[in-house]
Simulated assay, not measured.
Amino acid sequence: MSLDLNRLNEKLLNEADGILYELGLYDSLKKYGDPKVSGSYFLNLMTWRDLDIYLKSEAMDNETFFDLGKEITMKLNPSKMSFRNELIGKTPHLPEGLYWGVHTNLFDEKWKVDIWAINSEEVKRKQREVEEIKYRLDNSKKESILELKNQLHSHPLYRKTFFSVDIYDAVLNDKVTSLEQFKEWLCKRKEIQI
């Protein structure tokens, strides 16, 4: 694996730990449910400053979720926070729950923190998916995923029409190892041209 990407991953993991534990975000979340840090943090595959957290909560309402939002602003001093109610919206590729998208400047860097309050069944399903990916990773696959994520993270269609899960799927299930192979894979499997 590229030493630089490995170092970047470690640096981002350390910064994420600072957000969660030094700044106290994890303790704040625990007051409202059972937080599960997921995504690239859980997989040890970080290439940019984005943290995904699922908050297991059976009966989260808007008022309580906005109380949590106030605590988040006190801990992370965000420049912007976005709210979604996907219990109403039901957007196909998104979890059914309440969402805070937190944009903040921490450790002299811009960070985005995604927090979803969802029920225990949804959390179990999300955790199973990410644990399955982690179980199937080896050094070679990890290297391919980090390289692809690093090359694609600023693409205008990334996180709009294709996602990290597509990169994981391509590498783990179809042995994709290069950007050209991934472009072909996206075109064939998703009819997306990049």
Rank of each mutant, 00 (worst) to 15 (best):
S178N: 03
L23M: 14
E15K: 07
G101Y: 00
N9E: 06
L3C: 07
W185P: 06
D67T: 11
Y41P: 03
S38I: 01
E191M: 09
T104G: 13
E10V: 02
L148I: 10
E180V: 04
V165I: 13
L5P: 03
K183F: 12
F42L: 09
D138C: 04
W185Y: 15
E109W: 01
T73Q: 15
H153S: 12
S82Y: 14
L20W: 00
K175Q: 10
H103D: 15
A117T: 07
G33D: 00
P92M: 08
N105P: 07
R7N: 13
E10A: 09
M60T: 03
V102K: 02
R49L: 07
Y158T: 08
C187M: 13
V123G: 02
V165H: 14
L148Y: 09
E109M: 05
G18V: 01
K183S: 14
L51N: 02
Y26E: 03
D166K: 08
W185L: 09
K56G: 09
G89Y: 04
K30C: 09
D166C: 06
E121W: 06
T104D: 12
L5C: 06
V102L: 01
P35N: 04
S144M: 04
Y32H: 12
K30S: 12
L148E: 11
K110L: 13
K141L: 01
P95A: 07
L55K: 03
L13Q: 12
I115R: 00
D67Q: 13
N14M: 06
E63K: 14
E86H: 10
D17F: 00
E191V: 05
S144Q: 06
F83P: 09
H93P: 15
L146N: 04
E71K: 07
Y21S: 00
F162K: 13
K141C: 03
L25M: 00
N105Y: 14
K149Q: 14
I19S: 05
I88L: 14
I19A: 05
K134T: 02
S178F: 04
V123D: 02
F107C: 10
D4I: 09
N119T: 04
R7C: 05
D169C: 05
E109P: 01
N173M: 11
S82Q: 15
L25R: 00
E129A: 12
C187D: 12
N44H: 12
L152M: 11
H103Y: 15
K124R: 12
